[in-house]
């Protein structure tokens, strides 16, 4: 089984790259034969990724959420899967390349650095941890997708204002659709992040004796949560449209990524389990 895990670990970035190329090629060339088949490529990649995650769970006797590179792989899957569901629900097919790019980045980093022999500390075998991590990862997928649609909205908005009727104009859905997709993804991401934070606040003080509410990870996550909360409230309360809401989404995403990088690689935090 170990051998299968190694092979799939190498194969996954290649598969995501293939999906990215197929989606990118279709976006640039609008080839009819890829219109339906690209979705099949993505489905097969996600299926193989799921098998990989299940094999790891069985082989190493823990869900793959206990090291940062395991988490990166789950995040790559969550982003790809969220996009797949979104594409099925909305039938907006022209934006896949921009989102799959993030799956490719996270999976490539994961595949390079993931460890295959790791002893899991007892504290990480808690069920609440599973819920905490999964809701956080899905939340991050939501805000990533929201940011991508936000960027596409701004690009199309500019193109329309400047009378540029090129590939962006031809291939992207309408501004209204992009705005809705960005906002809905942000709302889903925000709700899931709220769940993750709530579980974290309940479970972390019990699990870690050195827990602190002023930990950099907690502070930065709260900051991200406040940005999204403010943007979503403003949209609901004042009926904001377009760029104003999108700026909150993009700002929140940048803050989330900076927080992820800083707390994972640079600062010292109790929130580092590995």
């Amino acid at each position: 089984m170990n051998e299968s895990i190694y092979i799939l670990n190498i194969l996954l970035p290649v598969l995501y790259l293939t999906v990215l190329i197929v989606y990118g090629y279709d976006f640039l060339n609008e080839k009819r034969f890829l219109y339906n088949s690209k979705r099949l490529f993505l489905f097969l990649t996600l299926l193989i990724h799921l098998i990989f995650l299940l094999l790891r769970t069985v082989e190493f006797d823990h869900p793959p959420i206990t090291t940062k590179f395991e988490i990166f792989s789950v995040l790559a899957f969550a982003i790809g899967f969220s996009y797949f569901v979104l594409e099925l629900l909305t039938d907006v097919r022209g934006t896949g390349a921009f989102i799959i790019l993030f799956s490719l980045i996270f999976q490539t980093v994961s595949s390079f650095f993931i460890e295959h022999n790791y002893i899991v500390p007892e504290v990480l075998r808690n069920r609440l941890l599973g819920l905490h991590v999964i809701s956080a990862l899905l939340g991050y997928s939501g805000i990533t997708i929201s940011a991508v649609y936000g960027l596409l909205f701004i690009q199309l908005y500019r193109n329309l204002k400047e009378n540029k009727f090129g590939i962006i104009f031809n291939r992207l859905p309408s501004l209204e659709v992009l705005e809705k997709l960005s906002f809905k993804s942000a709302v889903i991401g925000f709700v899931l992040l709220t769940i993750a934070i709530t579980i974290g606040i309940i479970w972390l003080p019990q699990a870690f004796p050195n827990f602190s509410y002023f930990d950099p990870k907690l502070v930065s996550t709260a900051f991200v949560w406040i940005i999204y909360g403010a943007g979503i409230s403003a949209k609901f309360l004042t009926n904001w449209y377009g760029k104003k809401v999108i700026i909150f989404s993009l700002g929140g995403f940048v803050a989330a990524m900076v927080s992820l990088v800083l707390t994972t690689f640079l600062s010292s935090t109790f929130h580092s389990f590995y």
Binding site: L156, L160, F169, L172, P173, S174, L175, E176, K180
Partner: peptide, 8 residues
Amino acid sequence: QVIEKIFS
């Protein structure tokens, strides 16, 4: 065509 790129 332009209108349809602004409104869904």
